[in-house]
Deep mutational scan, measured.
Amino acid sequence: DEDELTGILKKLSLEKYQPIFEEQEVDMEAFLTLTDGDLKELGIKTDGSRQQILAAISELNAG
């Protein structure tokens, strides 16, 4: 699971946030449920980064 998540972050060039997800024990299943508020709480402060992550999440959820 973590590897898939790392792959997604790398694709977005946001792998610098990978340790945050690891630290908070966010797995792929949890990742797919994250909201903008969750990402802010995790410490992802950049709007653009959150938008990219949320776009990836909705794409993955759309299947």
Results as ranks from 00 to 15, higher is better:
Asp1Phe: 06
Asp1His: 15
Asp1Thr: 14
Glu2Cys: 15
Glu2Pro: 15
Glu2Ala: 13
Glu2Ser: 15
Glu2Leu: 15
Glu2Val: 07
Asp3Cys: 14
Asp3Met: 15
Asp3Ala: 09
Asp3Tyr: 15
Glu4Phe: 12
Glu4Arg: 02
Glu4Met: 07
Glu4Cys: 13
Leu5Glu: 00
Leu5Arg: 01
Leu5Pro: 03
Thr6Asn: 12
Gly7Trp: 13
Gly7Val: 08
Ile8Met: 15
Ile8Phe: 10
Ile8Asn: 08
Ile8Ser: 07
Leu9Thr: 00
Leu9Met: 08
Leu9Ile: 01
Lys10Glu: 11
Lys11Ala: 09
Lys11Thr: 04
Leu12His: 15
Ser13Arg: 13
Ser13Ile: 08
Ser13Gln: 14
Ser13Trp: 04
Leu14Pro: 00
Leu14Arg: 00
Leu14Glu: 01
Glu15Gln: 13
Glu15Pro: 01
Tyr17Ser: 04
Tyr17Pro: 01
Tyr17Cys: 07
Gln18Thr: 11
Gln18Phe: 05
Pro19Asn: 12
Ile20Trp: 07
Ile20Phe: 05
Ile20Val: 15
Ile20Ala: 10
Phe21Lys: 03
Phe21Tyr: 02
Phe21Arg: 02
Phe21His: 02
Glu22Thr: 11
Glu22Cys: 06
Glu22Arg: 08
Glu22Asp: 09
Glu23Val: 02
Glu23Gly: 08
Glu23Phe: 01
Gln24Lys: 12
Glu25Leu: 06
Glu25Ala: 14
Glu25Met: 13
Val26Ile: 12
Val26Gln: 02
Asp27Asn: 13
Asp27Cys: 05
Met28Trp: 04
Met28Gly: 08
Met28Ser: 11
Met28Val: 08
Met28Arg: 09
Glu29Ser: 08
Glu29Asn: 06
Glu29Trp: 01
Glu29Leu: 03
Ala30Ser: 13
Ala30Met: 11
Ala30Trp: 04
Ala30Ile: 09
Ala30Gln: 09
Phe31His: 02
Phe31Arg: 04
Leu32Lys: 15
Leu32Pro: 08
Leu32Gln: 10
Leu32Ser: 09
Thr33Leu: 07
Thr33Arg: 14
Leu34Ser: 04
Leu34Thr: 03
Thr35Ser: 14
Thr35His: 06
Thr35Val: 01
Thr35Asn: 11
Thr35Trp: 00
Asp36Ile: 02
Gly37His: 11
Gly37Lys: 14
Gly37Leu: 12
Gly37Asp: 15
Asp38Met: 02
Asp38Pro: 02
Lys40Pro: 01
Glu41Arg: 12
Glu41Lys: 10
Leu42Phe: 09
Gly43Cys: 01
Gly43Ala: 03
Gly43Glu: 03
Ile44Leu: 07
Lys45Arg: 13
Thr46Asp: 15
Thr46Arg: 07
Thr46Lys: 14
Asp47Ala: 12
Asp47Ile: 12
Gly48Arg: 10
Gly48His: 08
Gly48Cys: 13
Gly48Phe: 06
Ser49Ile: 14
Ser49Asn: 13
Ser49Arg: 08
Ser49Gln: 13
Ser49Glu: 15
Ser49Tyr: 07
Ser49Phe: 07
Arg50Pro: 02
Arg50Trp: 01
Gln52Val: 07
Gln52Ser: 10
Gln52Trp: 01
Ile53Leu: 13
Ile53Ser: 04
Leu54His: 04
Leu54Gln: 07
Leu54Lys: 07
Leu54Glu: 07
Ala55Gln: 13
Ala56Cys: 14
Ala56Glu: 13
Ala56Gln: 10
Ala56Pro: 05
Ile57Pro: 05
Ser58Gln: 08
Ser58Asp: 14
Ser58Trp: 05
Glu59Ser: 10
Glu59Cys: 07
Leu60Pro: 02
Leu60Cys: 14
Leu60Trp: 14
Leu60Asn: 07
Asn61Ala: 09
Ala62His: 11
Ala62Met: 08
Ala62Arg: 12
Ala62Pro: 06
Ala62Lys: 07
Gly63Glu: 08
